[in-house]
Amino acid sequence: MKAVARSLVAALLLAAPFAAVSAQSISLGGDNAHSAAKLQHVLLLSDAVETKVGGSQAIELRFRVEDGFHINSHHPKDELLIPTALKLESAGAVQVLSVDYPAGKPFKLPSSNDPLDVYQNEFRVMLRVAAKSPGTTELNGSLHYQACDNAACFPPRTLPVKVLLTAK
C-alpha cells in the first residue's frame, strides 16, 4: 500500500510543473519599457548604480526622451514653461545630498524666433549621495516634466523613478 501511495505522489509531482506552466499568463511583445516610454515620452535608463561608502559621492542617472520630442530643461527661458525636475528621497543608509541638472540645448519651434531651452534624446542628471554603510538601497522618487513635439504639447507628466543604489 505504501508503494502505491509513493507512485501516486510521484505522479502528482511529475504533473505539477506542467500544470504550473498552463496557469502562467502569456505575454506577447514583452517590451513593456518601450511601451512606457511611448506613453510617457521619457524613460529612465539607469535603474541600478554603484557608489562608494562614505562621504559625498557623485552618481549619474540617465534618461531618454522619445525621438521627435523635447522636454524643457530645468531652467527653461520662459517662466510659463514647466521645468524638468527630479525628486529622489533619501532612504536607509543613503542620503541624497543634491541634484544637478545638465544645461539644456537651444531649440526653435517652426515659425518662432525665440529658442527654447530643452532636453532631447539622452540627458543625464548628476546626484550627490552619501552612503553610510555597504549594501543595496532602493531610492524612490519622480521626474516631473512636460513634453512637446514641433507642433503640439502633452500635459505635464510624472515619471516614477526607482533606482537600486549599491554602496561598496
Partner: peptide
C-alpha cells in the same frame, strides 16, 4: 490651448 504649450503660444 494651454499656458505650458509653446506651439499654442506661437
Amino acid at each position: 490651448w494651454a499656458t505650458y504649450c509653446g506651439p499654442c503660444r506661437v
